[in-house]
Design a protein around this nucleic acid. Sequence first.
DNA 1: GAGCTTTTTATCCTGTTCGTCCATTACCTC
DNA 2: GAGGTAATGGACGAACAGGATAAAAAGCTC
Lengths: 231, 231
Amino acid sequence: MKMEQGMTADDATGTTPKAKPSRKNDPEGTRQDILEVATEEFASLGFSGGRVDAIAARTRTTKRMIYYYFGGKEELYLAVLEKVYGDIRAIENRLNLQNLDPEAAIRALIDFTFDYQEQHEDFIRLVSIENIHRAEHMKKSKAIANLNITVIDTLARILERGRAAGVFKADIQPIDLHLMISAFCFFRVSNRHTFNLIFHQNLAATDTRTRHKRMIADAIVSLLKTEAAGT
Amino acid sequence: MKMEQGMTADDATGTTPKAKPSRKNDPEGTRQDILEVATEEFASLGFSGGRVDAIAARTRTTKRMIYYYFGGKEELYLAVLEKVYGDIRAIENRLNLQNLDPEAAIRALIDFTFDYQEQHEDFIRLVSIENIHRAEHMKKSKAIANLNITVIDTLARILERGRAAGVFKADIQPIDLHLMISAFCFFRVSNRHTFNLIFHQNLAATDTRTRHKRMIADAIVSLLKTEAAGT
DNA sequence: GAGCTTTTTATCCTGTTCGTCCATTACCTC
DNA sequence: GAGGTAATGGACGAACAGGATAAAAAGCTC
């Protein structure tokens, strides 16, 4: 005979008179708990590879609660995506680079992007995963569509100041610049495993990291300072 | 009553006297057929998302053949990986850039990389997928480990010539340079979907493509020509 | 064409996986 | 504390997915 949770000592016919465990309701807590575990699961195994049962098992609650709070596997995955995107945008929006001189501002922005991507592998993985799915889940998200994107604006202002000051000569669009910066920082993390395997390098090593950070910053800055050559 | 394949006209009790279809054996053909369909399936849906049954259905043969020729889902996936990696390396190895002047050689290499990635989305997707799996499948592949990688060597020689000629002043390692080029070309394709969605751009558009190609080439070249600034 | 191996087809099996049903307990309001 | 709503737990089910079994046809060698 098993001692069930929720039984009172009186109910128990066994010889272990335990105090009633007495369940505590914690809606917001369970929600967060599920969301955190789900983030790890999906970031680690992808949407198809992630298992609802596995998530439930590592939660302090049960699978039923996932469906109660999120509706289903896909909605849970979407909630995860919205959370991680919300996080990075929130931080980006707090960046204040307008009191630095243009080159310093660009370097600071690259510095931030580089470090953030390096430290948030889960984010990188989730974005990669979502691209494998051709962003089909993200397309359904109103939260992500309404995210306030300030990086492009920030970049535009820096570029403008740089051109006005005569330091930046190249005619580069803010979005393209953002793409170039993101590409490098992202790729180092996202493609780390195959790259390490094929080229016998360790992209996670500290010295490699600092070298790469300087390289991408130098590349961007020298691009901006160089007059367009024309093709 | 159904008319079954393999029935002779005599066996058929129906009124349609068909000639015996008579099966043809085509081992290599079947193998290739499976491999091609599997490439599409895995590139499109990932390893976990890809379905053995779905592959079999789009093949002119049956699921049993997949197990007969490849052993299982994972081995089939590995065969796909080995094929696409083999393809790109084979082409890379045929590049001949040593009779171009250093800058032209670098630009030609970037041109090739850019176009290849742009045109082989399946390759990009499979590499992304494999990175989500932390390259655990690739690690098991002897074929990929033994691939002859010449890009780094090619780059090293170009850099050397450039430095000797006094055109390239920066002290950049070949692998790092390859990383930077790959990162940009790869990211444009791999992260196309989320990028388009968030920044309302179309990274697949032709004008965007040519603009980006020039930008990455300019960035690399100006990096190489610039003296290291130091931090 | 006999005998053997290779290639192919059709059917079945078992564990997994997402999702649901139903009952129970906590919490809040009056 | 009565009664209603929110939150929770555990077990069940139906579809699916990877793989295995058995047997037959094709092709090769002598």
